Amino acid sequence: MNDKDFNRVSALAGLDLDYTALKSELNSYSILAAKVAGTELSEINLLDSYTQWTVASASGNDNQKPRESAVCNYTIKEENAFETRLDLDERFKNSPYVLKEGFKFYYGIPLKLKNSITLGSLCVAGKNLEHLDTTQVEQLHLIAQQIEQYLSLKHELNIVEEQLKQQHLITRRLAHDIRSPLSGIAQLKTEQDFKAMEREDLELYLSAAVASAAAMLTLTDDILSKDTASLNTNASAYVSLTELRTKLYELYTPQATPKNIELQIDCDATSVKIPRKNLLPLAGNLIANAIKFTPSGGKVSVALHILKDQDPTRLEIQVEDNGVGIAPQTIEALTSGTARAQTGTAGETGYGLGLRFVKELGERQGGTFTITSKEGLGTKVFLRLPID
């Protein structure tokens, strides 16, 4: 288990990116890189536990491929750049993009977050090119720096949004804490007979206290109403179960189809919106893992439920497959990060990252993660996350 790789996957998930929505924001960088290099291909790729996601391409195509078959999987291991003659490199010369598409030259630059954690790559590939000159290399690295700044801004935005959310929560708690004792003071006027007590001074004092308490109650009600409105302002931070189901179909059907695996995703019929933070990487890793270890003709079933009888209310993500299953000792090794890489049912490379990542990130969000499995009979995974 490579902790560096695990940290990279966790950092990418922390950005909470919608890969299909990045094209409009990043495609201009990819087009510019192709023009600078004079190549037919230029892509911006992000690599998670299992998949290389092409989020921008000079050709306009957004696609995905298994991480192990991607040249960029080598680029992310480099400090500065990865350059190779694809047609002469033993690792790639027999690949379809060389034999069928005719690509010969590749140059890739790792894209880093805060100059430390590599998330993906900017790459160019050509059919007639054999090398880049110094000026082209410098310009490509400048483009890569702009993409890294974009990713850093996404990271900083997430931090600011989380800080704002915490401030809102603090405001709500303070308002509730103030409201309770003030409600008691306000009730004194109806529970005490000041005239019978013949304490005019006390009556005046309590009357003033009641007036102050009533004013404070009005103020705290106003704080709570405004705070609720501000929490709901950022509509993009919330998603319905139907929207989540549609997005998961869009992202993971391309992985299930080549293996002739039926991907079924069901969800509760509700219009309730839930925080979307980390939902795609969490659910996506579970689905990708199930597809990887389910044989051709198998089935992966996903169910999305809101458990209102839980305290707090929880989102349950359930992923079930009829694949090869997991031995009890292997489950412990996978979730603890000590498992060795395992090969999928179609020869896919496993990195031992997915389940550990889901377990740790889910638990950091206050959730629970459980697995039930029998070798040869499939696996069932439950992830339950508290929702606001």
Rank of each mutant, 00 (worst) to 15 (best):
K195H: 03
A215I: 09
L202F: 05
S207M: 08
L241E: 00
L244K: 01
T218F: 09
T228V: 08
Y205I: 15
A235Q: 12
L217R: 01
T242I: 07
T218E: 15
S212P: 04
D227L: 08
L244N: 04
L206A: 08
M197Y: 05
S212F: 11
L244M: 11
R245S: 09
Y238T: 09
A214E: 10
T246F: 07
A215L: 15
I223Q: 12
V239F: 05
L217N: 02
L206T: 06
S236H: 11
K226W: 03
K195E: 11
I223N: 03
L202D: 00
L217D: 02
K247V: 06
S240H: 02
K247G: 10
A237W: 00
L204H: 05
A213E: 00
V210M: 09
A209Y: 01
E198K: 14
T246I: 12
R199T: 07
Y205L: 13
S230R: 13
M216D: 14
S212D: 14
E203D: 07
R199L: 13
A196T: 08
T218L: 15
T228A: 13
S230Q: 10
T218W: 05
Y205H: 07
A235G: 03
L204Q: 09
A213K: 01
L244P: 04
K226C: 09
S225K: 15
S225A: 14
A229P: 00
E243A: 14
Y205W: 08
E200I: 07
V210H: 12
L217T: 00
Y238W: 04
Y238G: 05
K195P: 02
